[in-house]
């Protein structure tokens, strides 16, 4: 059976869509991904986070994160009245199984999800002695597990506590912004699993990305702005008590 040009033109998009699904499970690299077309960040909406821990569980399953260590985690804050310099904070097992009631009444209470901020001027890549941790052209900070010496200088240099030492691989380890997913057009595991849309991956180079409108209309902050790390995880409604 020969196909007419018209038939091919109609079939191609369907075939492309189907191909995307086929690629979904196959461990290949992303042939059509151009790094310089993207600049990755994330929007974290404090007003929407319910502390369910789905993101922490999803990340640990997607990335084989060892028990007791966290590429992402959720913190619960309790602020008494005007004492924003003295919040009570907890994060039981990183919030992986949610948060048991803590008996707090009154005050201001909320959840803060945290992960690597993929800083533009990251102090961690600055201190790596061998170039084992680096920035990609699309703004993701990654670790080369086959090159890292395990000196742990980067772990010391990160102001956000998002890095850890992998207990069996003996290299530094942290959130990769699910690079293996976003380079294939998928979203990160944590954003996929979040039931309320508190976490949303953002491509800052894409003019149609909803984050641009969001940043214009909401009060947004990054963590520890005084350290000028160029963090790209933007928090909506971040309270002054958040460390």
């Amino acid at each position: 059976m020969t196909l007419t040009r018209r038939q091919i033109l109609l079939l191609l998009p369907a075939a492309a869509a189907a191909w995307d699904f086929v690629l979904a499970g196959t461990p290949e690299d992303a042939p059509n991904y151009k790094m310089t077309d993207h600049w990755w960040g994330m929007l974290l909406d404090i007003a929407k986070c319910i502390g369910c821990g789905s993101c922490v569980r999803a990340c640990s399953m997607e990335n084989e994160v060892p028990d007791g260590y966290f590429r992402t985690w959720v913190e619960r804050y309790h602020v008494d009245d005007w004492h924003i310099e003295n919040p009570t904070v907890d994060s039981p097992d990183g919030g992986k199984e949610g948060f048991p009631a803590n008996g707090k009444t009154g005050g201001k209470n909320f959840f803060v999800p945290k992960l690597c901020n993929h800083c533009t001027d990251s102090p961690c890549t600055q201190v790596c002695p061998v170039g084992a941790t680096f920035h990609t052209a699309d703004g993701v900070v990654l670790i080369d597990y086959n090159y890292c010496l395990g000196c742990r200088y980067c772990i010391q240099a990160c102001p956000y506590g998002c890095r850890f030492f992998h207990p069996t691989r003996h290299t530094a380890e942290k959130c990769t912004l699910c690079y293996h997913r976003i380079s294939k057009g998928l979203t990160t595991a944590c954003c996929e699993a979040c039931p309320t849309g508190a976490r949303q991956l953002a491509d800052l180079k894409n003019p149609n990305d909803p984050i641009h409108a969001f940043l214009k209309t909401h009060t947004v902050q990054v963590l520890k702005p005084h350290l000028a790390t160029g963090a790209k995880m933007f928090y909506n409604g971040l309270d002054g008590s958040v460390r």
Partner: peptide, 20 residues
């Protein structure tokens, strides 16, 4: 070091911004 066998990398591909 987690991987002392890789310590030569510091002399082969030193990252100039790194004090270490």
């Amino acid at each position: 070091l987690g991987h002392p066998e890789r310590s030569l990398e510091m002399y082969l591909t030193p990252h100039r911004a790194s004090a270490m």
